[in-house]
Design a protein around this nucleic acid. Structure first.
Lengths: 247, 247
DNA sequence: CGGGACGTTGACGGTCGTCAAAATTAGTGG
DNA sequence: CCACTAATTTTGACGACCGTCAACGTCCCG
């Protein structure tokens, strides 16, 4: 048994206010605490929900990191995102009352399970909550636009640079270093997310290291030249004729 | 002046019930009509909203076809989707109160502009509407998962097959043929959506025609062998060793 | 210390992007 | 209605990027 559930209140959450209660007055905040939110521990490689599971909860991550994947019928899976503290999971399940994704913890993690019915009901009374739910779903849509941009037109270098910058930024916003991090996902998982094979991911890391843009020791990343990475992402313009461009 | 606005009610909509009022009781339906929904005509190549525009409305398509695009900073645009009658546009704008996309009509079209504030307010009273809004946003998220799957791991043939099947299905659901259609978008727009260059799209069409899977005359498509297309999409498994696989 | 998961590196080839030019269609004005 | 130009589409030749296959290194945990 690797999952525990206990009654919990937002008031004591380590990801303070990143998820649902953003921007609520203290009175409204008390309302949130009335949501019967249960805390669940999910061990590394444990599954939070599978596709096909009926949608009962949305999940807010308290600590840890998750990946979400789609399992296509033909057996090829694909990572659709990596989520960390304060981010929410489960919106994919609302259309058909069942999840079309599965979510797996990449390290021992803790989530807050929020009954979807409770959220909708509460948000009928609390404007700020209602708006925030809309915002979170909209944010997910816009995030995915970025992924589509990446998958649609970028080369391996640009994809990996985009990915690493995004990751380190999100970690920095959570109080970690803006230049160092430990990846919680394998090369294969990165590749799946970026639409690349794991060998290509590995090679691209090596190239970055050779160009002393970063130090890479397995999953430990130390970014030495953030600007170089940023340029990679937006360099796409102004390429010399004859060069290979995916755009 | 290519845009007209007039007061309109759902009751007389040609895309009956595909957008907001799905599953509402007649009483609730009357509530929807209270939304100050204005009809807007948008001519071919006309813009419904641009990125940067503040979010005031969501849009339900009454007639016609639209494309939505992201404009990346570096000038490379990308089509994120094609929308037709009964489908809704604008969810991307909710996070930051401004659109991060632009929407362009591919033929003379007509939309219903629904003030976002009105929708949220009304949905606080009407459960079914509230749930439906959530569903539509969730559906958009799931749709994009499909696009990511396509962009992440499919070959040109599979992408185009997926695209055409999806399109013809949606048209069929609207009462059109299940085997014939006229594309409203150029090869370049298709390519942008599929993460391919227009030449590759054109070549792939030619190949489909050579294999008599379909007849292609410019933008007129006649599908002769739907099963062949379906197999392309799910064929990915069981490929002989030595073949190129993007998965 | 040994086995398995994970990561790195090399060689080779396929797909699709690039460049170029021709063909077909669409749109415009006389 | 027809000439003329612009836009879109098709087709070909060539090569870059990245996928495939394979072998080797490294790390972790029992």
């Amino acid at each position: 048994m690797d999952i525990q559930t206990i009654r919990v209140t937002c008031t004591s959450c380590p990801s303070q206010g990143r998820c649902l209660p953003v921007g609520l007055s203290s009175q409204e905040f008390d309302g949130i605490d009335d949501l019967i939110a249960t805390r669940r521990r999910v061990k590394r490689h444990g599954t939070l929900y599978r596709n096909g599971d009926s949608l009962s909860n949305l999940y807010a991550i308290r600590t840890g990191v998750f990946k979400t994947c789609i399992a296509s019928e033909e057996g090829r899976d694909q990572v659709t995102g990596f989520q960390m503290a304060g981010e929410m999971l489960g919106f994919d399940g609302i259309v058909n009352d069942r999840h079309t994704c599965y979510a797996v913890a990449l390290e021992d993690s803790e989530v807050c399970a929020l009954p979807f019915d409770g959220i909708t009901e509460l948000s009928r009374g609390v404007k700020a909550l209602q708006h925030h739910v809309h915002k979170m779903m909209s944010r997910e849509i816009v995030r995915q636009h970025g992924v589509m941009l990446m998958l649609g037109g970028m080369r391996a270098e640009e994809r990996l640079a985009t990915f690493l910058l995004n990751l380190v930024n999100r970690l920095h916003a959570r109080g970690f270093s803006h230049s160092e991090m430990i990846l919680r996902m394998s090369r294969e998982e990165i590749g799946s997310y970026l639409g690349l094979k794991l060998e290509t991911v590995s090679r691209t890391f090596s190239r970055f290291m050779a160009e002393s843009i970063m130090e890479v020791k397995q999953r430990h990343i130390h970014i030495l030249d953030t600007d170089a990475l940023r340029q990679m992402v937006s360099q796409s313009e102004g390429v010399r004729a004859g060069e290979f461009r995916r755009t």
